[in-house]
Design a protein around this nucleic acid. Structure first.
Lengths: 139, 139
DNA sequence: TAAGGTACTTTGTCATGCAAGGTACTTGGC
DNA sequence: GCCAAGTACCTTGCATGACAAAGTACCTTA
């Protein structure tokens, strides 16, 4: 028992990276369904688009998510031969998926509004607390 | 082996509620730190504000989150006697917490922009695909 | 047939949201 | 004093899901 001196130890503390990861969670699903809604794409296409939109995502996250969406009947796919490698799964939204996307769209809009309202309220209160500051008038 | 007929079975399927919950994750932390940044508040204050901002959160989520933030040195608190019940923990941001909040603010801004860019691109492509539609011109 | 590239899959670990139940302090009725 | 009700904070246990890393499979080129 005197061996095993260095137990890895879970810190459970918060660092900025961790928090940024958290913030991205759940948004992914919405973005992916959006991309698929534009037409048939396969996973690497999605990775490219998300990466260029600065939304980080890796294979280990994307593939299981696509599988979950497929199993829930929101996506469908077909195999397509590739001229340069193994066949690809091209995804499309099902009718259910389209409806689901619309609901996610509303959720995103509302969430975004709610968060911005909180941010705005903070800014407003800062302005109140420091009237010497040259900020625009509160309403 | 013929017994144990009804294994509870984890569906792991996606429904809209589940997705909405996912979307809210990670945003919470940002909102909570924002609220605390406005001045000393205790947990019930936060619950009220978040609820009225339509951001659902419950005690079982909030208290552990506050504890994690405290343990990470981002928050501090002091006990204050209440005239109508048990004492309350009033939270404030530490200097580290203030810096952290600024970084979260950037992350939120960028994430929000990225998502909106994806949404916009979809809208634009729909307009292209259906020129008969009376949408505004694409750029 | 071996090497390298592309694409999809699986396993294991960890973080965390949350329901439910618990602790503790205060006030008011009896 | 004792008990019920209200308020506030805390803990346990389960389910979910992000992701690193390792695995499988197909295709091309040499």
């Amino acid at each position: 028992m005197s061996l095993k001196p260095t137990i890895p130890k879970h810190e459970h503390s918060m660092n900025i990276e961790n928090a940024q990861v958290q913030m991205r969670k759940g948004i992914l699903e919405f973005c992916i369904m959006h991309i698929i809604s534009r037409g048939e794409v396969y996973a690497s296409d999605m990775l490219d688009e998300l990466t260029s939109a600065k939304i980080m995502v890796v294979e280990g996250t994307l593939y299981p998510l696509l599988t979950r969406l497929k199993n829930s009947g929101l996506l469908d796919y077909k195999w397509v031969e590739s001229s340069s490698g193994p066949p690809r799964k091209y995804y499309i939204l099902t009718d259910m998926g389209k409806q689901f996307l619309e609901e996610l769209q509303s959720t995103w809009g509302e969430l975004s509004d709610s968060v911005n309202a909180i941010v705005k309220k903070t800014a407003q209160q800062s302005a109140d607390a420091q009237p010497a500051d040259d900020s625009s008038k509160s309403e």
